[in-house]
Design a protein around this nucleic acid. Sequence first.
DNA 1: CCCCCTATATGTAAAATGTCTATATATAAT
DNA 2: ATTATATATAGACATTTTACATATAGGGGG
Lengths: 133, 133
Amino acid sequence: MCREHGGHHHKGSCRCGGVQTGRFLQPCLLLLLHRHSTHGYELMQSLDEFGFMDSEIDPGTVYRHLRKLEEEGLVNSSWDTEKGGPAKRLYKLTAEGEELLHAWAVTIKSNIQRLEKFLTKYHAQFNTLEERG
Amino acid sequence: MCREHGGHHHKGSCRCGGVQTGRFLQPCLLLLLHRHSTHGYELMQSLDEFGFMDSEIDPGTVYRHLRKLEEEGLVNSSWDTEKGGPAKRLYKLTAEGEELLHAWAVTIKSNIQRLEKFLTKYHAQFNTLEERG
DNA sequence: CCCCCTATATGTAAAATGTCTATATATAAT
DNA sequence: ATTATATATAGACATTTTACATATAGGGGG
């Protein structure tokens, strides 16, 4: 985090830790799995699409999230030993998982509104013009 | 959280816990304190302005955040025993605290972009029109 | 053989969070 | 009087989350 401020420090050392890596990971995984079933390693690599920097993705965290998703019945998994290399655990989104994805979309929409409300107030207090990008 | 889904359950029981109450609390407190110095109880009540529901604001959490902000030199505090009632701890934003507030604004802006990127992908996958509200 | 890439997983300590409870002052109601 | 309510702050405790390091294992290249 904090690529915004140009610092090159460790993951958790910046006080403006607003990138909410952890919580945001779940909906991203669900959305990726809705595209196509795949395994953790590929999911990990696809995460940069959502703005996750390589440096802020911890394999352990990703795999743990996936196992937890399965515990909660949001994904299924099965071992794929067909192709060469180490066995892959293939994840597949369940109906319940897709439901949760839709719930996340609603939540994220309202989060955006919340954050924009904050920015409006911020700009009002500092008399800065709100640039729309 | 999850007022979006109509559920009336406990604070931490919903899986789409995307409202990031905790992390978002800090910039809100800093922004409020930039407006005017005040004490925790009033800050707590002002938080609904940022979309915090009464039910999701725990006094303990707010006070804890404030004490931590002070530990980190982002606010100062002093006791106000002038007026009647229990003593109030008056908080005042420091220069460092204002700096962090600006950093938060940048972070929040990039978070919005991140979330919007997610929604774009979501709508693309489900062939829904993106309503701008 | 060693190194690197692929692939998954655990151990552990620190940090954040949720929930409950304690303290104290003042005021309004019974 | 005493009871309840609003103001005001804070700590205890358990659980959850997170970061970071490490472990295991297959397979290809030098």
